[in-house]
């Protein structure tokens, strides 16, 4: 089992290796070319500068925040209770965790089922599918502040929930829905038709085929969408300020008074906007960066696994 792929790989190497040598340009020849064509030289330099700028910017941002933030990751910052003295980020971290979980619980089933409908059930040229696609695209382009406004109007005012965790959760669920639908759709489309035919051929119904054959095969693709969504939820702030608000403690209920809950990003916004707790804001930035890094790492791993399977 393990021998087959390696054999194939070495085979591939053998066939591609000579090709690489044929068109190899030596450094000298390259320099001569540049001397003849100054425009090419300028373009090459510009390309290199742009690449260095982009990657350099990332390194600079990360280094700057780590150097200034890590020393302020004190035990006080992780105290269970927020007070105006310790401005602990622990409650905000836990709020972020709870809200992420709740959002996924709402959005993932809806998004996955929607994608199943679009890929497996809808007939070609269906009018409804067209409308669904347009609205999904629209939804993914709406800026988070507009989601925030809507959530505030609908949940906080109309429903009378006030600043509440649930308002933030539903708003977030609507925001990540298009992402889940799109990634799941891609994952479902990547499942070979022979799987479906095989399942139908063995006498399974459509539902059984979907749940027992198609969805399990598409799990890695769906997972990568979920991970991306987690990244979006953790990084979101504008949609949450007016929905889940800026409560500094872990709420006991999901709606009603006292259910206001600041996530880590909102917590950091309050700190940096006041300008009184810059060091603590740095510390929250470190935690947010670490989370982003972790999320990206996991999504990379999953994508690599999918690519391996395909290749």
């Amino acid at each position: 089992m393990t021998d087959a792929p390696t054999a194939a790989m070495t085979n591939e190497k053998k066939t591609t290796a000579p090709e690489n040598y044929i068109n190899r340009v030596t450094l000298g020849a390259r320099l001569k070319q540049y001397a003849r064509s100054p425009l090419s030289l300028i373009l090459m330099i510009l390309v290199m500068l742009a690449a260095i700028f982009s990657v350099g910017m990332l390194i600079f941002i990360i280094a700057y925040i780590l150097i200034n933030g890590v020393p302020h990751l004190t035990a006080e910052q992780f105290d269970w209770n927020y007070t105006t003295e310790n401005v602990s980020m622990m409650p905000a971290m836990i709020n972020t965790l709870i809200m992420t979980a709740l959002t996924l619980v709402i959005a993932v089933p809806i998004g996955v089922f929607a994608a199943v409908y679009l890929v497996e059930y809808a007939k070609r040229g269906n009018k409804l599918v067209k409308i669904i696609r347009v609205t999904t695209e629209t939804l993914s382009g709406i800026p988070s502040i507009v989601f925030g406004l809507f959530g505030y109007l609908m949940f906080n005012i109309s429903f009378g929930w006030g600043f509440s965790m649930m308002a933030g959760v539903i708003t977030l669920a609507m925001m990540i829905l298009p992402l889940i639908i799109r990634t799941t759709e891609e994952a479902l489309l990547a499942v070979p038709d022979s799987y479906r035919e095989g399942s139908f051929g063995l006498g399974a119904g459509k539902m059984r085929t979907v749940f027992r054959v198609i969805l399990p095969t598409a799990v890695p693709g769906i997972m990568s969408g979920v991970i991306l969504s987690i990244g979006r939820i953790v990084g979101e702030s504008a949609a949450l300020i007016f929905t889940s608000g800026s409560g500094h403690s872990i709420p006991g209920s999901l709606v009603g008074s006292g259910s206001s809950a600041a996530t880590l990003t909102v917590h950091m916004y309050i700190l940096s906007n006041e300008g009184l707790h810059v060091n603590e804001a740095f510390a929250s930035a470190v935690v947010l960066l670490a989370l982003t890094f972790l999320i990206n790492l996991v999504s990379d791993l999953i994508e690599r696994r999918i690519a391996k399977k395909k290749g």
Binding site: L58, I61, Y269, A285, N296
Partner: peptide, 14 residues
């Protein structure tokens, strides 16, 4: 990818 994933509040703070 990481540059894309950094939360906007962190960019703002930076």
């Amino acid at each position: 990818n990481l540059l894309a994933g950094i939360p906007s509040i962190v960019y703002g703070f930076f």
